[in-house]
Design a protein around this nucleic acid. Structure first.
Lengths: 264, 264
DNA sequence: TCATGTGAACAGATTCACAGCG
DNA sequence: CGCTGTGAATCTGTTCACATGA
């Protein structure tokens, strides 16, 4: 889901639903593990368990790729690894650049999963002149001035942004102008890009906030019903048409009328 | 999307659809920015643009929280910030532990977005005895032996796993046994957890693979039709019932019969 | 006989379009 | 009049359940 703004339907490219595409890497990982253990075939049931999905979904997913299984038997591991790899475009080499070599950028550069599976870190780029030339993950960091040249020389079409939020849009614009058409954004900002450019974002604080939401709910559990009935903890129930106290238009908060504004 | 295995329906908790919950942090961020610029109100149109969604979706999302807007005017920024914060459970403090202080763990520890918005790093934990006591992000790293005690003493319910894949499940088990009920997993593995525990995963290589899929498609463009017709690039068309060459059962690959197995 | 592959039923999310209210 | 709030239509994704074929 993280395909960012401005670029839309992105619907099923050549018939494969987006949700399925997002699961293919999961299957591929599970299959690779099986392959390493020289397991020749798997059933949808086994593979689904390894990938953490249910088997009906997995079979449906695979059905979009074609009929690659054998009824009564299962799927040939090696063959599926190949098919999924090809479908994902991993049989070719994808040079990527990482822009912003701070803590996170360095972590990404060192991340092994990057190098495997068809991705190759073509360059590490940072705006800080003091970083230029410094070795990170066995590679010399290059200055932002070189960005366009690097993209061009290496035929880079995928860029990773690991800069502070403030710099992200500007970096993004330069990447796109230089020919990058897919961006993985770690900066906590919404990027705008022209049509035809894909953006996916990875956002730590968003993930945490989603967890907090569910966590909060767990704590409440049975108390919720009671509280809602009694105090009217928001929801349509709290739709007080006229504010009970305080002259303003709004301020219909359930636990006290004045919002306790969050710290920045 | 990312709610991990074993725990499922997870559907709408108390009426708010999961998809909406996932966008609330986005709105909150945009609203916080407006708040800092002292903007008093926003229309759904403006806010949607800032958050990178469309306005109908945003209005629908907000409608699940209650009727917090004013027709003909828009939404009160401060008020919405408060409502969303409360809905997400950010008006309380969430102590989190980060397990695995490698490159990534250190990056996370240093990540500012952590500290803001209700999350507090209660401890950094690593299995390497050599790391113990070392300062990272102004905090002394503690040894895994202390894990249970730390969780308990600090009332931690959210854990972040940034260990290598091999250690993740084991760490996860210990976190859960110690009382953690929400986990953010950066290790490239499927975690199994008992019912009632939420897992969200952030997986760099999966994101890249999804980008590669779309990237590949862009490159192909009009050529796809032709190629499929001519060579029979898989799809139902490639459903060769009997392998053309090579004795095996499968191996129906389009560009060469032997799968070019990926490197690990 | 067994597990795949898939139509059909269902569920969830998005978009449309407009009634309703400030 | 302008913008929110929301039913209804649509679209996407998931699950069911079973016919099909190795």
């Amino acid at each position: 889901m993280a395909t960012g703004r401005t670029h839309r339907p992105a619907t099923r490219s050549r018939g494969i639903p987006e949700a399925t595409v997002a699961r293919l890497p999961l299957y591929l990982r599970a299959l690779t593990a099986l392959s390493e253990r020289s397991v020749p075939t798997v059933s949808s049931e086994e593979l689904a368990a390894a990938a953490g999905v249910n088997s009906a979904k997995l079979r449906k997913d695979f059905s979009y790729l074609g009929s690659y299984g054998t009824r009564g038997v299962g799927y040939d591991v090696e063959y599926l690894v190949y098919q999924i790899s090809r479908e994902l475009g991993l049989t070719q080499d994808w040079p990527v650049v990482i822009v912003g070599i701070g803590n996170l950028g360095a972590a990404l550069a060192n991340y092994g999963g990057f190098a495997s599976r068809g991705f190759r870190v073509a360059a590490l780029i940072d705006a800080d002149p003091a970083m230029a030339g410094k070795p990170v993950a066995g590679m010399a960091v290059q200055h932002t001035d070189e960005l366009e040249k690097i993209i061009d020389d290496n035929g880079v079409s995928i860029g990773v942004i690991a800069t502070p939020a403030g710099a992200a849009q500007q970096v993004c614009d330069r990447l796109v102008a230089a020919g990058v058409t897919s961006i993985l954004n770690f900066a906590p900002t919404v990027l705008s890009v022209p049509d035809g450019v894909d953006v996916r974002k990875v956002d730590l604080s968003i993930e945490l906030q989603i967890l907090a939401f569910h966590e909060q709910r767990k704590a409440g559990e049975g108390a919720i019903e009671a509280a809602e009935g009694a105090v009217g903890v928001e929801g349509p129930a709290a739709k007080v048409t006229k504010p009970a106290a305080g002259g303003g238009t709004h301020r219909k908060g359930p636990d006290g009328d004045v919002p306790a504004v969050m710290p920045a």
